[in-house]
Design a binder for these strands. Structure first.
Length: 766
RNA sequence: GGACGGAUAGCUCAGCAGGUUAGAGCACACGGCUUACAUCCGUGAGGUCGCAGGUUCGAUUCCUGCUCCGUCCACCA
């Protein structure tokens, strides 16, 4: 753009050139620094973003993963965020859209290992923890650069100078301080939980580091007697038969579970059985997830060595606090047996399997065996079968923090759009249990806990996990929770934090880093996809309330999920991914944005559709051509029409009707944006522009504009006023084309240099 | 197992805080290159608004049940 002040009233001939215009306008915006909250329509760019009496509007943009370019889903989010940002900016508010990039824990670790290290023939162990972190950091920052340019290209008017990476040292400090505060408030504790252990790599694995693999296995039917009484060494009396593929883990059984609806076991529920070989008495409990059709419908419960069983234990304990069952861990990291396992102690898992089966057979407790197909977890790296074991993890207590988080939504202090999503939120919050936050990775926020010496975990004689340092059991004296090392000999915890623990702090962490809390917190809207309402939004609410005592945002807008044209999820493996380049390079950003606003469904999924893209492109062309017509006629008749006082002009019937209709459109569009009904807003607007303004009014106006005699001032004024107003109304939706045209519309010197700061239309005197 | 959403024109979907002839785009039929636009304009055909009840003067819209799709959750980001 040569100069925005240079109003030629001419638009280039021919159809609208999307790409060229958009690139030109983007340069103009970036040069003007209009995206910064420091920019003031009258005073220009200020040095500080201080409170200047203007109302504020702030959206913290959800940070996309810093390991790839944003996909169409990310871009749809930006489109909604930007729509709201531009709308509020035009309402005169000091506006901040704050962008960021997420280190994305496990995902980035996997991507970096797969796409970078593997190609160099290395793995993360070759690099060592520190070097790995350094290189992965660099990798993410490189990706972030590309992502940033995509974000700009779609028209996101965010303050890119402030683009923040989640592992930025300032952010890390804030995140970890929250951990320390929670620990001091006794809201964080160490607890024992089931973990995926790879016996070959000798490391704990996150679920995502595991693969599923089908294999054949032997299903053994074992009788658990109800009583200890034996005749000639053989159990006599009634028994219950369970089926298992892992007989050796029976030594760690702490219950037998049946489906509560199962009539066969109706009389046995609540009774106990004798665990053979170790002669332990264990209860028969119920769980609705026990499959009555599988095996005998009775399931041995081994919470320490089967994730499903662990869950059943948690569920049972929650619902039956007076009849809790516990875990017994018998397999340890060296794949040998420990704990209360009698003569099987120190055997390997394989040896124990053989020995246990043999002994059960001798006791006459093996009913039969059959071959089945089963799925097991294997280590993604070495393909070894995962051994689930119990280990010590950090937990956040949720009882206290979740209560207020439910309350703020219930009382409407935070509103969720669409409204019905609130139900999902409440459901999730109600069932929320203490939150395990350690992850066995390198990439992320390393837990700020220090042990006085090397911490070791072991299994005691009861099968419980204990931690010790040297000879001493772990106690408060031997742990320090603080950001910096307490000194020589203190060793930091190996794990990193769950990424939700950090992203849950994103709204205030970013503003604290930028020193903008006073101005922009609480923020206004959290705009994200509905699928992470529970995972992310709920955490932001809880942690926001905990750390700042305030809600982190007032409204939550949950956009829909964009599916491929065939209605399936876009995924690389299906090959149905449509990239930003496919669209923007051909149709431009405005077209894509229109697609989101018109077709997008808050809270649910919708399909991508090339036909609709074509329609959108045609719409832009319509805007372009109509503008050419209007500008041409203004130039011909009166290019200073904006100086005229409309009260002194003579209006035709059709002029008045047009202005009246536009007034109505303004009200409707404004109302619908305010209540987050973006599709209704743009529908109304596009229909009004295309049909009322173009098809009806422009045709009508020709009679007066082309007339040899008479004074067409009223009509010219109407043509001018409507065009300018439509551009302003449409600007939040299609920012590029509207800026381009608005620049050419003659207007007074008081108007700002960019449509971004034009005043949002209120009503027209007619 | 639990929770949630959808079912409206041939297709993809809007709409419905209950109220005149239920909308759009695409597709279809007919007519128009009129000096902003054929990436366009005009005209038209096409729907018992999933099924069964209920509330109401009135229901596509609210309630209940059913059928059929889809999604999410069970500690994965």
């Amino acid at each position: 753009m040569s100069s925005p002040k240079n109003k030629t009233l001419d638009l280039p001939k021919g159809p609208y050139n999307t790409i060229q215009t958009e690139e030109e306008i983007l340069e103009f915006w970036k040069k003007g620094k209009y995206f910064k909250p420091e920019f003031h329509a009258k005073k220009g760019l200020q040095t500080k973003a201080e409170n200047d009496g203007r109302q504020t509007f702030c959206i913290i943009c959800p940070p996309p993963n810093a390991n790839a370019r944003p996909h169409l889903g990310n871009l749809s989010g930006y489109s909604y965020q930007d729509l709201m940002g531009r709308f509020n900016r035009m309402l005169g508010k000091k506006t901040l859209l704050l962008p960021g990039k997420d280190h994305a824990g496990i995902q980035s670790e996997v991507v970096f290992e797969r796409d970078v290290l593997k190609k160099q023939g290395k793995n993360k162990l070759d690099l060592g923890r520190e070097e790995f972190y350094k290189q992965c950091y660099k990798f993410c920052l490189e990706c972030a650069k590309m992502a940033r340019s995509d974000e700009e290209r779609v028209g996101l008017s965010a303050d890119f100078d402030r683009d923040i990476f989640t592992l930025d040292p300032d952010i890390v400090k804030i995140i970890l301080e929250t951990f320390v505060k929670l620990y001091k408030d006794k809201q964080i504790y160490k607890g024992i939980r089931i973990t995926n252990w790879c016996p070959k790599c000798q490391t704990a694995l996150a679920d995502i580091d595991c693969e599923r693999k089908g294999r054949k296995a032997e299903l053994t039917y074992i009788k658990y007697p109800l009583h200890k009484s034996r005749t000639a060494g053989i159990y006599s009396g009634p028994s219950i038969t369970i089926a298992t593929t892992r007989p050796e883990t029976m030594l760690a059984d702490t219950a037998v579970a049946v489906n509560p609806k199962d009539k066969r076991y109706k009389d046995l529920i609540g009774k106990t059985v004798i665990l053979p070989l170790v002669e332990r008495e264990i209860p028969i409990i119920t769980d609705p997830q026990v499959d009555m059709e599988f095996g005998t419908g009775a399931l041995k419960i081994t919470p320490a060595h089967a994730p499903e069983d662990y869950d059943i234990m948690l569920r049972w304990n929650e619902e039956n606090p007076d009849k809790k069952i516990d875990y017994i861990n018998v397999i340890w990291k060296d794949s040998k047996l420990y704990g209360p396992v009698g003569k099987y102690k120190s055997m390997t898992v394989e040896q124990a399997k053989t020995a246990v089966t043999k002994d059960l057979r001798l006791l006459g407790l093996i009913e039969k065996t059959e071959e089945i197909e089963q799925n097991v977890s294997i280590c993604e790296r070495c393909k070894e079968v995962i051994e689930p074991i119990m280990s010590s993890q950090w937990y956040v207590k949720v009882d206290k923090i979740k209560k207020e988080a439910i309350d703020v939504v219930k009382t409407g202090r935070i509103k969720i759009h669409p409204k019905y999503m609130g139900k999902r939120y409440f459901q999730w919050m109600k069932d929320l249990r203490d939150w395990p936050i350690s992850r066995s990775l390198w990439w992320g926020y390393r837990i700020p806990a220090w042990y006085k010496g090397k911490r070791e975990e072991y299994v005691n004689n009861e099968g419980k996990i204990e931690e010790k340092i040297g000879k001493k059991s772990l106690n408060d004296e031997l742990i320090k929770v603080q950001l910096d090392s307490p000194g020589d000999g203190w060793i930091q915890d190996d794990d990193v934090l769950d990424t939700w623990f950090s992203s849950g702090q994103w709204p205030y962490a970013t503003l604290m880093k930028e020193n903008l809390m006073d101005i922009f917190y609480p923020t206004d809207v959290m705009e994200t996809m509905y699928d992470i309402l529970e995972w992310w939004v709920s955490r932001m609410i809880m942690l926001g309330l905990y750390k700042t005592g305030k809600i982190p945002f007032k409204d939550v807008y949950l956009h829909g999920m964009l599916l491929a044209p065939d209605g399936a999820k876009m995924s690389k493996s299906k090959g149905n991914v449509i990239s930003m380049d496919d669209i923007v390079a051909e149709h431009g950003a405005d077209t894509l944005r229109l697609f989101y606003y018109i077709a997008g469904k808050a809270g649910s999924s919708y399909r991508f559709d090339w036909e609709r893209m074509k329609f959108n492109r045609n719409f832009l062309n319509k805007i372009w051509n109509a503008s050419k017509f209007v500008l041409m006629n203004i130039k011909k008749k009166d290019k200073n029409i904006f100086e005229k006082n409309p009260r002194g002009l003579e209006f035709q019937k059709g002029d008045k009707k047009m202005l009246k209709d536009l007034n109505k459109t303004i009200q409707e569009v404004t109302r619908n944006i305010e209540r987050f009904k973006f599709n209704l807003a743009i529908d109304t607007l596009a229909d009004s522009f295309w049909h009322t303004y173009c098809d009806e009014y422009l045709e009508y106006s020709k009679e007066f504009v082309y007339a040899e005699e008479g004074d067409p001032s009223g009509t010219i004024w109407t043509l001018w006023k409507c065009l300018k107003t439509y551009m302003e109304l449409m600007h939040p939706f299609v920012p590029f084309i509207t800026e381009k045209i608005w620049q050419q519309i003659p207007k007074s010197e008081d108007e700002p240099e960019t449509i971004m700061y034009a005043k949002w239309p209120e009503g027209i005197i007619s």
